[in-house]
Simulated scan of single mutants.
Amino acid sequence: MRKEDCFYLGKIVSKFSFKGELLIKLDTDDPQHYLKMESVFVEYRKKLVPFFIQKSSLQKSELLRVKFEDIDTEEDAEDLIKREVYLPLEELPTLENDQFYFHEIIGYRATDKSFGAIGLLTGVNTTSPQALFEIDHNGKQVLIPLNDDFIAQVDKENKIIHLDVPEGLIEMYLE
Results as ranks from 00 to 15, higher is better:
I106R: 13
E74Q: 10
K140D: 11
I144W: 06
D98L: 08
K67G: 05
R83S: 14
L63S: 01
E62H: 00
L23F: 06
Y34S: 09
K60F: 04
L95A: 09
K11T: 06
F41N: 07
L23H: 03
I53A: 03
K60M: 09
L23S: 02
K67T: 02
H103I: 10
R109P: 07
K19W: 00
L95G: 02
I53D: 00
E62V: 01
L35D: 01
L64K: 06
L26H: 00
M37V: 01
K19S: 09
E104Y: 06
L120F: 02
P88K: 02
T127G: 12
E84K: 14
P50V: 03
K113R: 13
P31I: 04
L23P: 06
G119A: 11
K25E: 00
E91Y: 07
G116M: 01
V49I: 11
S57Y: 00
Y44V: 03
K113F: 04
S14G: 08
F133L: 15
M37Q: 08
V42N: 10
L80Q: 09
I81E: 06
F133C: 10
A131C: 10
N138H: 06
E43W: 03
L132S: 07
G20V: 05
G119N: 13
E91A: 11
F115D: 08
V13G: 10
Q99H: 11
F133I: 03
N147T: 08
E84G: 08
F100A: 06
D136C: 09
L92S: 07
L95N: 03
D30N: 14
L26D: 00
A117F: 15
I81S: 13
G20K: 07
D98E: 10
R83Q: 12
R83I: 02
R109T: 04
E90S: 08
T73Y: 04
T127V: 12
H137V: 12
S39H: 06
S128L: 15
K46H: 05
V49Y: 00
Q99T: 01
F18V: 15
G123D: 12
K25W: 00
G119V: 10
D70A: 10
E38W: 04
E43N: 09
Y86W: 08
A110L: 07
F18R: 14
V49N: 04
D149I: 07
K15I: 09
D98A: 02
H33N: 09
A131G: 07
K140R: 13
K113P: 08
N125L: 15
Y86R: 15
S114N: 15
I71Q: 08
H137N: 15
K47P: 00
L92H: 06
D148V: 11
E78Y: 12
E21C: 09
K19L: 09
L23D: 02
L63C: 04
S114A: 10
E62R: 07
D136I: 13
H137K: 13
E75N: 08
D148Y: 03
A77Y: 01
D27L: 03
D30V: 05
K19G: 02
T122G: 12
K67Q: 13
F115S: 14
D76I: 08
Y44N: 14
F133W: 06
G139L: 09
I53G: 01
Y86S: 13
V124K: 12
